[in-house]
Write a protein that binds this DNA or RNA. Structure first.
Length: 569
DNA sequence: CCCATGACGAG
DNA sequence: AGCTCGTCATGGGT
């Protein structure tokens, strides 16, 4: 008896029409009817729904609150297999058919007029693949898919494409297939994150914005006055001079007149001068406030925090580089001073969990370095590394990070050489990645994601650039295999947590590279804490899988809080 | 109006 | 340290 999810069911939604194909039997019709049927099938222990993308096919189901459990996402699978971000169905199809991408036909009409076609027009064939072998540009519009037979043909094609992708994944190994599952789940999670938003304390947010940006302006003129006052507090330290603080060149001159000569006015350049002249300190503080005033101010609140006090932004499951999740509306770069405004709803708490020392632990896993894997058994991985290298912990930490990210400056020198001797397998993997970057040779992450280096950081392939760009590409490659693998483990963890907290009435409300924020009724807090730990153990074990010579330990710090700033800094 | 750049927030 | 992302403001081009 096949378990849930072992059955693959292609599902396509085009405007108001939809179709799926189960065991060769089509179900097609109005989107409302078909999706109601999908919900019933899902509730009865669903199959794995094969979709062109979660965004295109599952958005209406997610909007209705259906917790779609298992999917195969053609777009995410494509990004995994072939790298980059472009994953339109036409791109997926052409790639799998071995056709050049620059031959993909464009149909302006389909873009502009997404309307049902004339029902008497029977001149167009029912094959979604056109005469040139490419997917018809109009195939995913109602202009073409306006009748059941065509929707079913489309679903059949989607199923075939997924089958081909699976074969290619399987050639990469079982881990790549598992990664395709969790990447697909992440794409659904992205829709849920966007639907549910991040709970906010609006009054607190307004107060925090006011602290940095002043009171809410009542008019354009009022706004200008407040801005001028903010500027004046900096310019007071440079009497007799005028400068536009938003113009780096003028700021540079202003600083020079005060005796502070800098090449650029970047924060990390100025920071050392903070104490040398009060102007520098005032300027740096001004920039902090200005950031909140312009980017995270009242307009941001009004635009992105809904009437239900939830902060919402669009999410993507994988960026074009190493495959991390991204979010808009400032969800991934909320300034620390605003974090107290992220607050659980009454009767609820946040369970916050973040992965400790995730990148070196991932390095141990993906390299299979036995000695380094042994170090992961410690709560603090750098302690055993320091002991082995006979150096201070801080030195060991800098050396490990330098190895992973390709530091050029600084003095990690001798420790780096010792690191090479102590953990040759892990360091060798990093060196291979660096070499691949130099040679523009593509890489794959542990989970099978293709890291393309022919286009990355290339001014123009072949010409120019020089050593600076080559080395930058090397560092990018070195970092991508770690960052990318960490993103895969993170998403596998998140997908597991998503399933396990639902019965508790909980939901993931934020994903932050190595951190999960789960919103849960307070009486379920302890259960959720246990879930987060268990989910990590399970997903890490599945993810590391057969390569486990020595087990690699992953750890999560989990805390129950009411406001986001409560847990450790 | 588009686009590159500088600056900075987060991990 | 090094890498990724998103966002805003400026200023040089069209």
């Amino acid at each position: 008896m096949a378990g849930p999810g072992s059955e693959f069911v292609p599902l396509v939604v085009v405007g108001e029409r939809a179709a799926y194909l189960r065991a060769g039997m089509p179900c097609a019709g109005s989107a409302r009817d078909v999706l109601a049927e999908v919900a019933r099938v899902e509730a009865a222990g669903g199959p794995r729904w094969v979709v062109p993308s979660a965004q295109a096919s599952l958005a209406p189901l997610v909007a209705d609150g259906l917790p779609v459990a298992r999917t195969w996402d053609l777009a995410e699978a494509h990004r995994l297999l072939h790298g980059g971000w472009a994953a339109h169905p036409a791109v997926v199809h052409a790639t799998l058919a071995g056709l050049p991408l620059d031959g993909i036909p464009r149909d302006r009409e389909a873009d502009l007029f997404d309307l049902p076609a004339d029902p008497l027009d029977d001149t167009r064939p029912d094959d979604p693949v056109g005469p040139g072998g490419y997917l018809r540009p109009e195939a995913l519009t109602l202009g073409w898919a306006d009748r059941d037979s065509r929707l079913v043909a489309l679903a059949r094609l989607v199923g075939d494409l997924a089958a081909t992708q699976q074969q290619r994944m399987a050639q990469l190994g079982p881990r790549a297939v598992a990664t395709a599952y969790s990447e697909s789940a992440a794409a659904v999670l992205c829709l849920e994150l966007e639907r549910d938003g991040l709970p906010m304390d609006r009054a607190r947010a307004e107060a925090l914005v006011a602290q940095a940006a002043g009171p809410r302006p009542t008019s354009e003129a009022d706004a200008a006055r407040i801005r001028a006052e903010r500027d004046a507090r900096v310019l007071a330290h440079a009497p007799g001079r005028r400068a536009d603080l938003r113009n780096p060149a003028q700021v540079k001159d202003l600083l020079a007149a005060a005796g502070v000569e800098v090449a650029t006015t970047r924060k990390w350049v100025l920071e050392p001068y903070r104490a040398t002249h009060p102007l520098v300190a005032a300027l740096l503080d001004w920039r902090k406030d200005e950031r909140i005033a312009t980017t995270y101010g009242y307009r941001w609140l009004d635009e992105h925090v809904g009437p239900d006090d939830r902060l919402r932004g669009a999410w993507t499951a994988s960026d074009g580089a190493a495959g991390r999740m991204t979010a808009q509306a400032g969800l991934h770069n909320l300034p620390a001073p605003l974090r107290p405004a992220v607050a659980a709803q009454p009767g609820h708490v946040f369970v916050r969990a973040d992965l400790g020392q995730i990148e070196p632990r991932v390095l141990a896993a993906v390299s299979g370095d036995r000695a380094f894997a042994e170090a992961t058994l410690a709560d603090d991985l750098y302690a055993p590394v320091a002991a082995k290298l006979r150096v201070e912990r801080s030195v060991a930490k800098i050396a490990v990070l330098a190895a992973m990210y390709g530091q050029r400056s600084g003095a990690a020198g001798e420790a780096l050489r010792d690191l090479q001797r102590a953990y040759p397998v892990a360091m060798g993997l990093l060196d291979e990645a660096y070499a691949a970057g130099l040679a523009r040779r593509p890489l794959r992450t542990f989970g099978g994601r293709l890291i393309r280096l022919d286009t990355a950081l290339a001014p123009e392939a072949g010409q120019g650039g020089g050593e600076g760009w080559d080395a930058a590409r090397g560092r990018f490659a070195r970092n991508a295999i770690i960052q990318g693998a960490a993103a895969e483990l993170f998403k596998a963890w998140a997908a597991t947590v998503r399933h396990l907290v639902r019965p508790l009435g909980g939901q993931i409300v934020l994903c932050l590279h190595d951190e999960l924020l789960v919103h849960v009724p307070e009486q379920q807090a302890e259960a959720a804490v246990a879930v987060l730990h268990r989910a990590l153990a399970d997903s890490a074990r599945r993810w590391v899988g057969a390569s486990a010579g020595v087990p690699v330990r992953f750890v999560a710090e989990v805390s129950v809080i009411h406001r986001w700033d409560e847990a450790k800094g």
